[in-house]
Design a protein around this nucleic acid. Structure first.
Length: 452
DNA sequence: TCTGGGGTCCTAGGACCC
DNA sequence: TCTGGGGTCCTAGGACCC
């Protein structure tokens, strides 16, 4: 917590709906819902007119249709338009300070102390941010924003919410506890429906109630991290800095089908399409991923993930798709899938990915000594054995069938799943091993006797 | 026709290693 | 008969956020 109110949290009001109303005057003053408008859609944003009828973000669109009157507009999101306006706003924030943390398309923190030139008195920041909100409105064609300024991120965010829409709250340093104590614990970051419900069972409704719980009790109920977090936040203790850059840790795509899909061919083509999207973004980021995860949701909404970590990070869509296919093959889809998704994570640089391959080498195959070369960026063409590429099916005369997990510099690692090797056994061979050859047919997993 | 899509972080158990 | 203790990696699930 800082001595002065120098952290700004800015939030655009009912952003998606406001952009639609700005761009289409006939929508102004009317209830507008932006989100999934299909049978299984949910509301992304409800305009304030729609909120008056009880429509809310994350509500099933079918429910919003029931609540809102005839004449309500239900619209698909136009992300391009939102991004364009978002950029205009973020540029205005960067005019105030170089330290801007964009949390989402419609939300950001700004460190007003960073430039060292702003008047950080309560009156000073109030004038500064009031002017900012005016400039946002004129630069975006009338979008309104709400802002909170406080001594910490937590209080700034709570402040921006207090007088929405078009509100500005400066929390005077020293009054933080007064502000939060009467509020619901739900205002604290990390307190969602589940945590709020558990707290309620202990008679905790407000932040003041939460202050009465001891740290050992909170830790025993919520675990080490969450317990300490709750204890701190209830006392307005928040030292998080405004972070300019946050690295991406996973990339994923998923889709909920209008009707549950039991058809493997259809699921496979959906999977391929999603891998193309994920792989495209992975390629843009110029990084390599080691872990591939699929996600499935059944008709009863039970949701599962299956993941596989490769020995060898990859940037290739074919490898991601092949891995995802193998994971999906293990899922019972006979009742149909409601949702299918795929993601990649465990990003590494190319140099590290070569190192990872070296580390899993089996001792019975002498590794080529390369004292420092493995730490250097590898040349453009990765495998030195062109016939073996990660993700391809192979057979070994003695060990049965498997697929290539890593290939390079005269060696190939094969992952077998058979009675002799056990599931997931990885063996490494010289790539000219005569007992190693392409598998046929490629769908060896379907054949129970394949490695027997 | 209840319940999207894209993320982050945490926990817990098992394998494995020293 | 009784069976350590960390640490790390991987997997799966859950809570949460916008």
């Amino acid at each position: 917590m800082r001595a002065r109110a120098s952290i700004l949290h800015l939030d655009l009001d009912a952003f998606f709906a406001a952009v639609e109303q700005r761009d289409k005057p006939s929508l102004r003053g009317r209830p507008v819902i932006v989100g999934g408008i299909g049978t299984r859609g949910v509301v992304s944003t409800a305009s304030y007119e729609a909120r008056a009828f009880g429509a809310r973000s994350a509500m099933p669109t079918s429910e919003a249709r029931r609540r809102c009157p005839p004449g309500t507009a239900f619209l698909h999101p136009r992300f391009q338009a939102y991004r364009a306006s978002s950029r205009v706003v973020m540029d205005l924030l960067h005019d105030l300070s170089p330290v801007v943390e964009q949390v989402s398309v419609d939300e950001a923190y700004v460190d007003l102390a960073a430039p060292g030139t702003h008047d950080l008195s309560v009156a000073g920041v109030r004038a500064l941010v009031a002017d900012l909100i005016d400039r946002i409105a004129s630069a975006t064609g009338g979008l309104t924003a709400s802002a909170g300024v406080a001594s910490s991120k937590m209080l700034a965010k709570i402040g921006s919410d207090l007088e929405k829409p078009h509100g500005l709250v400066v929390v005077e340093p020293g009054r933080e506890l007064q502000v939060i104590e009467p509020l619901s614990v739900r205002v604290l970051g990390g307190v969602g429906p589940a945590t709020a419900e558990r707290l309620k069972s202990f008679g905790v409704i407000t932040v003041a109630d939460l202050q009465r719980m001891t740290l050992p009790d909170l830790v025993s109920i919520f675990g080490e991290s969450h317990g300490h977090g709750l204890h701190r936040l209830a006392r307005a203790q928040d030292d998080r800095e405004v972070e300019v850059e946050r690295e991406t840790k996973s990339i994923s795509a998923e889709e909920t089908f209008d009707v549950d899909v039991p058809d493997r061919a259809r699921l496979d083509s959906e999977l391929a399409a999603m891998v193309t999207r994920v792989g495209g973004r992975l390629g843009q980021s110029a990084s390599f991923a080691r872990t591939v995860t699929i996600k499935v949701r059944h008709h009863d909404f039970t949701t599962h993930t299956r993941s596989a970590t490769l020995t060898h990070a990859t940037g290739e869509q074919a490898v991601v798709l092949d891995t995802a296919r193998r994971l999906l093959a293990e899922v019972d889809v006979s009742d149909g899938l409601r949702l299918l998704g795929v993601g990649v994570s465990g990003f590494t640089s190319h140099a590290q990915d070569q190192l990872a391959f070296d580390e899993v080498d089996e001792p019975d195959v002498p590794a080529t000594p390369e004292p420092s070369a493995s730490r250097e960026p590898a040349p453009e063409s990765r495998p030195s054995a062109p016939s073996w590429r990660t993700g391809h099916d192979v057979r070994h005369d003695e060990l049965g069938a498997g697929w290539v997990w890593g290939a390079g510099r005269g060696r190939v690692s094969v992952r077998f799943e058979g009675p002799r090797t056990g599931p997931g056994a990885v063996r490494t061979f010289a790539s000219d091993d005569p007992a190693l050859h392409p598998a046929d047919p490629p769908d060896w997993r379907e054949r129970p006797d394949v490695s027997g």
